[in-house]
Amino acid sequence: MIEFNERETEFLNSLEEARIATSHDDVPHVKPVSFVLDENTIIIATDYETRTYKNLKTNPNSSVIIDIYKSGKHKAVLIQGKTEIIENGDEFKKLYNIFHQKFEWVRRDPWKENEAPFLKIIPKNKTSWGLDSR
């Protein structure tokens, strides 16, 4: 399994927005999402009706970019991996609790098991840049 170094972990834990890329029938799809880092995986909440969810049901490959863009000082972590869909059970409850604690929008609009899944991106490759400069 790919592991994040200390600077990458610190950077990932400092942000809450990412962009996830999926595809279906060779058509790419990218959208902004909220995420958390949990045990060297990227966790994203989604809905069953989204293009992202539908794409991942047929093709579990995904890519996620977490970045801060400043001209000449761009910082980013790019992750490519396989996605597991977590809909219920102990892992769902654990992830839900993490999201509930971190995000106001979850506390405002809560959901239960099998109402909206989590996407668990297990990194197969990663690249980061700009993290040496603060």
Rank of each mutant, 00 (worst) to 15 (best):
F118A: 04
F103I: 07
I121H: 01
H74W: 13
P123N: 04
L12S: 08
R51I: 15
T22R: 01
E39V: 12
K54W: 05
N61Y: 05
L15S: 12
A18F: 03
L95P: 03
L131Y: 09
K73E: 13
E8Y: 03
K102C: 09
N13E: 15
L15T: 10
K102Q: 01
K126L: 07
F92W: 04
Y48C: 06
E49L: 09
K73G: 05
L78Y: 10
K112N: 13
G81Q: 02
D109P: 04
A76Y: 15
N59V: 04
M1E: 06
V33K: 01
N5L: 07
P110T: 11
I43S: 00
R19H: 14
R7W: 11
E8H: 03
I122R: 00
V30W: 06
G130P: 06
K31S: 15
V30D: 12
F99Q: 00
T58Y: 08
P32F: 05
G130I: 12
W105G: 10
N61I: 07
Y96P: 09
K73A: 10
V33E: 01
I98A: 06
S63Y: 02
Q80N: 13
K120N: 03
N55F: 01
L78E: 12
N5M: 09
T41Y: 02
D26M: 13
L15F: 13
F99P: 13
F118G: 03
F118E: 04
L56G: 12
G72C: 13
I98D: 14
T41Q: 02
D132K: 13
K82Y: 05
V27A: 12
T52I: 12
W105I: 04
Q101L: 10
I66T: 10
D26W: 10
